[in-house]
């Protein structure tokens, strides 16, 4: 390592050590474990800044934070999986003894033996580690693929296809009191009849053209091609609008982190 890098790293270490001392002093009398609390807040601030430093460029602090995050989070989800799925869902159905040991409520049932199926499939999956019998793990994969395909077939048909079709049944005439009335009261007020009707026309034609854009088996030429072109424009409006609409939420996240740094760590009165 270069000498300047070493000096820089030493400075950072000293800086956060000082932060620990100051935070601990600030917590004294307020918190019981003030030394630990001071350390934890300093650590959180250090990690926050380490991740942010990635925006400038990749650096040792980011690498440290990244590697720590990977190790801790992998173990986090494994622990969660063990306690909630194995202890929480599997043992109570398979073994009264295990349930008693882990003090979870045993669920007696006639069909509990079915729960050996995933256990067996899980073990078959581990056969992947064997050189000669690795192919058996495909049976488990096949089961998973079958489950996913079967469950999602109906699920998507229902929520993404059928329900979206029926919610597009919008009337093209709103508050209709005759053509004379329509023209006499024509205006561009946001809550006026014309704009309300226009909204429904756009929804109707927009959905139709959007679907046409997705047609695979017909060449997009002529009238069909023009409709598909309108479909792309509608999609582009959708993407632009959703992008713009999300910005606010993203800024809020940054506000949250910066507020943490200023208020909880630096103790500024804001």
């Amino acid at each position: 390592m270069k000498r300047t890098t070493l000096i820089l790293m030493a400075l950072v270490v000293i800086f956060f050590a000082l932060s620990w001392i100051f935070k601990a002093m600030a917590f004294k009398g307020v918190e019981e474990h003030y030394i630990l609390q001071g350390f934890l807040v300093t650590l959180a601030a250090f990690l926050t800044l380490s991740i942010m430093s990635f925006l400038y460029k990749d650096n040792p602090f980011y690498k440290f934070a990244e590697h720590l995050f990977v190790g801790i989070s992998a173990a986090f989800w494994m622990s969660m999986g063990f306690w909630s799925t194995i202890v929480g869902n599997l043992f109570p159905r398979l073994s009264e003894g295990m349930s008693n040991f882990f003090k979870v409520h045993y669920i007696p049932g006639d069909y509990n033996f079915f729960f050996y199926v995933p256990v067996i499939l899980g073990i078959l999956l581990l056969m992947r580690l064997s050189r000669n019998y690795g192919w058996i793990s495909r049976w488990s994969l096949a089961f998973i693929v079958g489950t996913t395909a079967g469950l999602n077939f109906i699920r998507y048909l229902r929520s993404d296809f059928i329900n979206q079709v029926s919610s597009t049944f919008v009337p093209l005439l709103v508050d209709w009191q005759g053509i004379g009335h329509f023209f006499s009261s024509l205006n561009l007020s946001a809550s006026g009849q014309f704009i309300m009707m226009l909204a429904n026309w756009v929804i109707f034609l927009g959905v139709m053209c959007g679907i046409i854009y997705f047609f695979f088996s017909k060449e997009h030429t002529g009238l069909f091609g023009r409709a598909s072109r309108v479909g792309i424009w509608i999609l582009m409006i959708t993407f632009g609008a959703s992008f713009g609409y999300t910005v606010m939420g993203r800024i809020s996240l940054l506000v949250g982190r910066i507020t943490f740094l200023f208020r909880d760590w630096l103790g500024l009165n804001i």
Binding site: L254, I258, F262, I270
Partner: peptide, 19 residues
Amino acid sequence: RRVIFLFIFISVAAPILFP
């Protein structure tokens, strides 16, 4: 892009620091 990042940081942090 780093210049853009800097502007975003200032534009968010400054109003928090100086309401």
